[in-house]
């Protein structure tokens, strides 16, 4: 329990709880819209924002937000234009974003390797009170938007053509969702790291989808999974001295494997005992 006496760990736990609420809300829609790779792309491209921040001597969080929002809109355009092979444009943007970020970083004076490392791998224990406040605001926005737009998003996610004929502004909704994901990635990235942010967003929802057949319950189960994964990962990383973001991602993967095996075993059991 000693870890709770440290201010940085208290903030880390607060941030973890907030991320655990945000992640399944965004993650579920990302998975169902087959945009899991988009989260990865945005997290790589967000490094350009970090590099621009250092280069222009601006707050990197601010420049990242701008860059990620612009790219989120571009991604929606590419998704529509290259519907049948949209992963190609994602792959180009992902590697292009990382390459551009590294080139821009080389123009920044002084040693920036530490800084870029921090954004690549993240550091939840160095989180500032301001970052916790921004996360809290993002959490409130995500939850409110989920409750307000749950029904339109359900139909949009089920089938875009059906949503369009039902009179929903499909394009606008998609862009707004992408921008929200972009903002979430920009805010979570310094904490979880560019390389792991998409895993933290996607995995709780992916696990919850295997455990619940009700749409709303998936989000709730995802939040519970998120809390278990984030808090246990953080605790393990504290005692084992391992990187927090990586440990959390590994805990989520372990949970995914365990629930998959458990579900398969339950299925076999039901089949064996003829339970419908």
């Amino acid at each position: 329990m000693e870890m709770f006496f440290y201010g940085f760990m208290q903030r880390a736990f607060q941030a973890s709880l907030l991320i655990a609420i945000i992640a399944p809300i965004l993650g579920l829609f990302l998975i169902l819209r087959r945009q899991s790779l988009m989260a990865d792309t945005l997290s790589h491209v967000s490094l350009v924002g970090i590099a621009l921040g250092f280069l222009l001597n601006l707050n990197p969080t601010f420049t990242t937000l701008i860059v990620v929002m612009v790219v989120a809109v571009i991604l929606e355009y590419l998704r529509i234009e290259f519907k049948s092979y949209s992963e190609v444009s994602l792959a180009i943007l992902m590697s292009g974003g990382l390459a551009l970020a590294l080139v821009l970083m080389s123009f920044v004076d002084g040693g920036t390797n530490t800084s870029i490392d921090q954004f690549l791998f993240g550091s939840i224990v160095t989180i500032s009170p301001e970052q916790v406040q921004i996360l809290a605001a993002l959490c409130v926005i995500s939850v409110v938007m989920y409750f307000v737009f749950r029904k339109p998003m359900y139909v949009l996610t089920f089938d875009e053509d059906t949503a369009f004929t039902a009179g929903l502004p499909v394009r606008l909704m998609s862009i707004c969702f992408n921008v929200l994901v972009g903002v979430a990635i920009a805010v979570i990235m310094p904490i979880a790291g560019s390389l792991l942010v998409s895993a933290i967003l996607i995995l709780p929802a992916a696990i919850a989808m295997r455990m619940s057949k009700h749409f709303d319950y998936v989000i709730l189960v995802g939040i519970v999974i998120g809390i278990i994964g984030m808090l246990s990962g953080l605790s393990v990383s504290y005692y084992a001295g391992t990187p927090a973001g990586a440990t959390i991602a590994l805990v989520f993967i372990a949970l995914f494997v365990v629930t998959s095996i458990g579900k398969q075993a339950a299925k076999q059991f039901r089949k064996k005992n003829d339970i419908v």
């Binding site: 057949k213 009700h214 749409f215």
Partner: peptide
């Protein structure tokens, strides 16, 4: 479409 969609028939 969307075979893995987490929803019941009723929903």
């Amino acid at each position: 479409y969307n075979a893995g969609f987490p929803s019941t028939v009723l929903e």
